Simulated assay, not measured.
Amino acid sequence: MTDSQEKLAKKPFVIPQFTAKDYTSFFTAGAICATLTHGAMTPIDVVKTRIQVDPQLARQSLLSGGKYIVKNEGATALLTGFGPTAVGYLVQGGGKFAGYEFWKKQFAQIAGDQETAVKYRTAIYLGGASVAEFFADILLTPLEATRIRLVSQRGYASGLVTGFARMAREEGLGGFYAGFLPILCKQIPYAIGQFTVNELCHEVAFRSMSEETRRNLTGTSKFAISLTSGVIAGFAAAILSQPADTLLSQINKGHGPEGSMVYRLKELAKQAGFRGLFAGLGPRMVMTAGLVSGQFLIYGVVRDALGAPPGLEIHKETSAKL
Results as ranks from 00 to 15, higher is better:
183 I>C: 14
143 L>H: 08
167 M>F: 00
140 L>G: 05
175 G>P: 01
140 L>H: 13
179 G>I: 11
202 H>I: 11
147 R>Q: 14
140 L>F: 12
184 L>A: 04
168 A>S: 13
142 P>W: 06
196 T>N: 10
173 L>Y: 14
186 K>L: 05
182 P>A: 07
195 F>C: 05
182 P>Y: 04
181 L>A: 11
197 V>H: 03
183 I>A: 14
156 Y>G: 01
175 G>F: 05
191 A>R: 04
184 L>N: 04
183 I>R: 13
199 E>A: 15
143 L>V: 10
150 L>N: 04
190 Y>F: 14
197 V>T: 14
156 Y>T: 01
168 A>Q: 12
170 E>T: 12
145 A>D: 02
194 Q>I: 00
180 F>D: 01
185 C>L: 12
163 G>W: 06
149 R>Y: 06
192 I>L: 10
164 F>L: 12
170 E>P: 06
160 L>R: 08
158 S>L: 11
151 V>Y: 04
192 I>Q: 02
180 F>M: 11
190 Y>S: 01
168 A>I: 03
189 P>R: 12
187 Q>R: 04
139 L>D: 00
158 S>W: 08
149 R>D: 13
139 L>C: 12
177 Y>N: 01
178 A>H: 07
179 G>W: 05
170 E>I: 07
141 T>E: 15
147 R>Y: 13
173 L>V: 15
163 G>K: 02
142 P>A: 00
183 I>P: 00
177 Y>E: 05
158 S>Y: 08
176 F>E: 03
162 T>Y: 09
184 L>I: 13
142 P>M: 09
143 L>Q: 02
197 V>K: 01
143 L>D: 05
172 G>R: 07
163 G>E: 07
192 I>S: 00
163 G>A: 01
140 L>N: 15
165 A>P: 00
160 L>Y: 08
186 K>P: 00
183 I>K: 14
179 G>M: 05
146 T>G: 05
193 G>Q: 08
177 Y>G: 02
193 G>F: 09
178 A>N: 07
176 F>G: 00
168 A>H: 11
165 A>V: 03
174 G>S: 08
168 A>E: 12
173 L>R: 11
140 L>R: 12
196 T>F: 13
189 P>W: 13
147 R>K: 15
156 Y>E: 03
194 Q>E: 13
141 T>H: 09
195 F>M: 13
191 A>G: 07
141 T>Q: 15
160 L>T: 06
197 V>Y: 03
140 L>W: 07
188 I>M: 09
176 F>Q: 02
140 L>Q: 15
165 A>M: 04
185 C>M: 11
145 A>V: 08
164 F>A: 04
